[in-house]
Design a protein around this nucleic acid. Structure first.
Lengths: 346, 346
DNA sequence: CTGAAAGCGCTTACAG
DNA sequence: CTGAAAGCGCTTACAG
């Protein structure tokens, strides 16, 4: 290392000027090396890279961002009542971004706020975000997606069904998982199968319900209107909906809930109603949350690879992201996990 | 709005130069207004603020950061196996930061990695972080704290006990919550009380255990060595530890677990052992996680105000943070929540 | 393939 | 109380 380094306070990081001087080239050439320009002689590139290594030089993202008119920040904009979803997506995104030089900035929002679009415009413009990830249900907001296109910010929407061009969409095919649940229950001989869905303001609920009905149809069954309840994706709403179902003269022998929170509510309701799971009623959830295996009996549920989804979204947006050895299909498949909460009818 | 604005592409944001020109002052004066310098004539300030309002001008954080040699990013560095902790802290931090102009950058780490310090130095220096929040157990790393002091980055450590100067510490007094649990069980007449603690590498486990033993002592009880098990803060370790306790000749009549995950494992073990909660064994957890009220019977547990803790840490670090009307004591108190999993002995 | 000049949008000294 | 100059650490045209 050069001893004549002037600003070597130890505390001060090296700049592009230091590297240029030590390598005996212009800062522009160093800049070309940083940005992997092909117009640098191999010899020059190596010399510059060597100096960068020796000095531990790392380009300043703020200065780069200012000149580029674009930051190295990826935004995660979420409004999911389920913390497990957010944290899993976040973790996956960070998996993909690790070592890429990009950072993740998180922003919870209220998707029903009248100020949502104005806030998002301000956020994206002010931070000059490099890209944005929109998990559901924020991903379902067409106006938000339109805004991001207008602002020319790359984004990926994570959703239950294709809502956008393939490059901007990571699809989880929620309906297919629900169809698996329907087939599973039909295979066990159930015919009086109830459904507790989520709010219709969640596309996931709509898609899961649709998939469930398709699965039933395959088995020659239909969803009876009196067995179709609408919950709020919350534990309490699951309890209440199940109590209503259990009060029916012709009780269902199986209940499919469009998320695990509500399915957990069914466990509580069954206990109150004096019904055994699965002997008296089979229960299937959706999410395969940690609680599924902590309940008794362990709950059959549909698993969504949330962390993978976050990682894949990150890989779609971030250059130099760590990539798994997998095809770059922009989709994942839900998977039914059969446990003790479902059994043969009667 | 001035019609003669040259760069009004609509798509382009206004800069400090636009504001200066429109207000008929130098950009330096605009800068003073932005930074709330007292050396600006009230009249001038008002005129500048008015132009800023009209044009919707917002200073560019990257440019400001470059000139300031400091970004407007707050880092959240975490390594907590419990996602609920992270998401709650994160949410609280964001509550405090909302509208402050600062953004939250999240960084999961492996606190046992030999590269931790080097990675953190790089992270903090490269991003020129404005401040850093360290939840436990990362907060317990003295070398990391020393590094941050060396780098001159403000930080707040969130931990079970005071580990640093008051201005750098948010204390949750975990031991006090454990003492409440001990008193509660003693009040119910229990004397053979077991403890399932977490790994001693977690300060929270040490403090909770200590508080628990102090609480027992107050009631004239002591923790019998054969009733003291060490778990891993995981569900499975709770199951195993409880099975060992249940196999004892002199079974405990109550078990206190240092987190809810392990306490949930006790429920499972009790079922396997054919023991009823609370008739045969009382159970107390720690965290008051969502699962506490979804189990049957609902679990008595010690609650920690995680979101508040995140918010308070944010308030300690971020200027202009939204502040609750509360004293700025840098501490919170755990609170025992009594439910159906604890009952009188015998 | 390489570089000198100008600029990204701000703030820090320094003057007055 | 206010401003002209220089600079933060990079990149974009523009030359050669």
């Amino acid at each position: 290392m050069a001893a004549r380094d002037p600003g070597s306070d130890k505390t001060k990081r090296h700049t592009i000027n230091d590297v240029a001087r030590l390598a005996g080239v212009s800062k522009k050439t160093v800049s070309r090396v940083i940005n992997e320009s092909p117009f640098v002689k191999e010899e020059t590139r190596k010399a510059v890279l060597e100096i960068m290594r020796e000095t531990g030089y790392v380009p300043d993202p703020q200065a780069r961002g200012l000149a580029f008119r674009r930051s190295f920040l990826v935004g995660l904009i979420y409004d999911n009542p389920n913390p497990q979803h957010t944290i899993s997506h976040q973790q996956g995104l960070l998996d993909a971004m690790a070592g890429s030089g990009f950072e993740l900035v998180v922003r919870p929002v209220d998707r029903n706020s009248p100020r949502l679009l104005a806030d998002m415009r301000d956020f994206v413009e002010r931070q000059k975000l490099f890209a944005v990830v929109l998990p559901s249900p924020v991903s379902e907001d067409e106006k938000l997606a339109a805004l991001l296109r207008e602002l020319d910010v790359p984004y990926v929407r994570i959703g239950s069904v294709a809502l956008d061009e393939p490059d901007r969409m990571l699809v989880s095919h929620d309906g297919r998982g629900a169809a698996q649940a329907a087939r599973h229950l039909a295979d066990l001989g159930h015919t009086r199968i109830a459904l507790i869905s989520g709010p219709p303001t969640f596309r996931s609920s709509i898609e899961r319900k649709k998939g469930f009905e398709e699965g039933l149809a395959e088995a020659g069954l239909t969803l009876s209107p009196d067995l179709a309840k609408i919950g709020a994706y919350t534990y309490e709403s699951g309890v209440n909906a199940a109590l209503e179902l259990f009060a029916l003269e012709a009780r269902p022998t199986a209940i499919f809930c469009l998320n695990d929170e509500m399915a957990t509510g069914v466990y509580t309701a069954a206990r109150e109603a004096g019904l055994r799971i699965p002997e008296d009623v089979s229960v299937v959830g959706y999410d395969d949350a940690p609680i599924a295996v902590r309940l008794w009996p362990p709950m059959t549920s549909v698993r969504l690879p949330l962390r993978d989804m976050g990682r894949m979204a990150g890989e779609m947006l971030v250059p130099n992201a760590l990539r798994e050895k997998r095809a770059d299909a922009h989709e994942v498949q839900p998977q039914l996990v059969v446990r003790g909460s479902t059994g043969k009818v009667g």
